[in-house]
Nucleic acid binder design. Structure first.
Lengths: 119, 119
DNA sequence: GACATGTGTCAGTTTTGATTGACAGGTGGT
DNA sequence: ACCACCTGTCAATCAAAACTGACACATGTC
């Protein structure tokens, strides 16, 4: 598998995705059983649009995987499940990640700065 | 030693503290060498008030420790250094943390510090 | 005394993220 | 046709961070 995201940015995504109570709960719920969006939203008492966004964030970080399946009665349902992951957080790990994060601190927002320097 | 912070909340603090590019860089810089606030701010190009806030967040998460020392010329300087830490991030780890996070989704124990008004 | 260094904190702004409600589809059952 | 489910996305709101520019206060030196 090709991983387009550099190590630093990836860890950053993982950490910022995991550092949120709601998303921790989502991971917990999906660890217990894979589930589809609407039902999960009901179970953990969260609006579907919101859950959708959180799942998107978690999926972007590679922590959960979603697959669109067709139930027997023909309905399209998006099932999510946790992806097995293992990250070690140490000063060294973070330092390495930060190192590979230097050139462009934040991919898209860094652009603005340079565009406003023209005068 | 009594640890007032439940496991879930603690991990949450760590993750949300680490999931930020600026703070990752701070950890990296402090891993290379312990430093005091003003100098560190200069080196990584960040305003002191802002760095102060980030360091506070990192310290609250137990990732760095700050000590107030007196330099030879009598100036009070706050030196920071990274605290050795090791966290394993797995679906299981997160689930356990989320479990101990249920009763109060976001208990802001940071308040305690500031609620020490009577003295 | 004026300067350069360090400390800390405050109020206010800007930016980012979280959250809601409504909408536009799709399928099958009654 | 209508209802009960599912899917997705949009604009608008709200809350929480991040960030800035001051300020107050120490100390040693020119």
């Amino acid at each position: 598998m090709n991983d387009p995201t550099p190590a630093g940015e990836r860890l950053l995504k993982v950490l910022s995705a995991l550092g949120h109570p709601q998303r921790m709960r989502i991971i917990a719920a999906l660890t217990a059983e894979r589930n589809y969006v609407s039902r999960l939203a009901r179970e953990i008492g969260m609006s579907r649009p919101l859950l959708h966004m959180h799942l998107q964030r978690l999926e972007a970080a590679g922590l959960v995987t979603g697959t669109l399946e067709l139930s027997e009665d023909g309905k399209a349902m998006r099932y999510f499940e946790v992806a097995p992951f293992l990250y070690e957080l140490t000063p060294r790990t973070i330092t390495d990640a930060a190192e590979s994060l230097r050139p462009e601190e934040e991919p898209e927002s860094a652009k603005r700065k340079q565009e406003e320097e023209a005068q």
